[in-house]
Amino acid sequence: MKPWQSLIVFIVLVLAASLLGGLSVPDAWYAALDKPAFNPPGWVFGPAWALLYALMAFAAWRVYRISGFDVAIALWLAQLLVNALWSPLFFAMHRIDLALIDIVLLDLLVVATTVAFFRRDRIAGWLMTPYLAWIAFATALNAAIWSLNQG
């Protein structure tokens, strides 16, 4: 496969994850939830995720070009799947608790992916760090929303 073709594959994969997550969006249920003071405005999420998905695709592409399909790319695919499941759990099923479990698993997978990427290509590892920071924040946000809305 030519380099640009494999880049397109990674872009398509993140777009598919984004579209799956985008099928479940905030609704009246979400609007009625108590949220912490650090909850960002809704408009932040779209641009943030667009940038993060682009960085994730480019990082995976760099690692793929160096190592092919190996453990690092398998971890990347696993975290992408877990990422895509969060929105349906949270927004469609209204399961803040299951979404919290999902995002903690996502944190672990992204840490493992980032470490694996750093071992293969430092630039790819650095490209994953904004995503790691964002999901750490999202985990704290998910946990706070769960805590504020129990009972």
Score class of each variant (00 low, 15 high):
K2H: 13
K2A: 08
W4R: 10
Q5M: 12
Q5I: 09
S6G: 11
L7V: 12
I8V: 15
I8Y: 05
V9R: 12
V12L: 15
L13W: 04
A16W: 01
A17W: 00
A17G: 13
S18M: 13
S18Q: 14
S18D: 11
S18A: 15
L19H: 11
L20W: 15
L20Y: 15
G21K: 04
G21L: 02
L23A: 15
S24N: 09
S24F: 03
D27C: 03
A28G: 07
A28H: 02
W29Y: 06
Y30C: 01
A31V: 09
K35I: 01
F38T: 05
N39Q: 13
P40G: 09
P40W: 06
P41H: 04
G42F: 10
W43V: 09
V44P: 10
G46T: 13
G46S: 13
A48E: 09
A50I: 13
A50E: 08
A50Y: 03
L51W: 04
L52F: 05
L52Y: 03
L52S: 07
A54S: 15
M56W: 00
M56K: 02
A57S: 12
F58R: 11
F58A: 14
A59T: 03
A60M: 14
A60Y: 00
W61P: 00
W61L: 01
R62M: 14
Y64C: 02
R65A: 14
I66E: 15
S67W: 00
G68V: 09
G68I: 06
F69E: 11
D70T: 07
D70G: 14
V71M: 15
A72V: 06
I73L: 08
A74H: 08
A78F: 01
L80F: 05
L80T: 15
V82D: 07
V82T: 11
N83W: 05
N83R: 09
A84K: 06
W86A: 09
W86S: 10
W86H: 15
L89Q: 00
L89F: 07
F91M: 11
H94V: 04
R95Y: 04
R95A: 13
I96M: 15
L98Y: 09
A99L: 01
A99S: 07
L100W: 05
L100C: 02
I101N: 09
I101Q: 05
I101C: 10
D102R: 01
D102Y: 03
I103F: 01
V104H: 01
V104K: 01
V104D: 00
V104L: 13
L106A: 08
L106C: 03
L106M: 08
L106P: 09
L106Y: 04
D107H: 07
D107C: 11
L108E: 10
L109S: 07
V110K: 08
V111P: 11
A112L: 14
T113N: 03
T113K: 04
T113C: 07
V115D: 10
V115S: 02
F117M: 14
F117V: 09
F118Y: 10
R119G: 13
R120Y: 00
R122K: 14
I123R: 15
A124N: 08
A124H: 00
G125A: 04
G125C: 09
G125I: 06
T129S: 12
T129V: 12
P130H: 10
P130V: 12
Y131P: 06
A133L: 15
W134L: 06
A136D: 05
T139H: 12
T139V: 09
T139C: 02
L141G: 05
A143G: 09
A143F: 02
A144S: 15
I145L: 05
S147Y: 07
L148N: 10
G151Y: 00
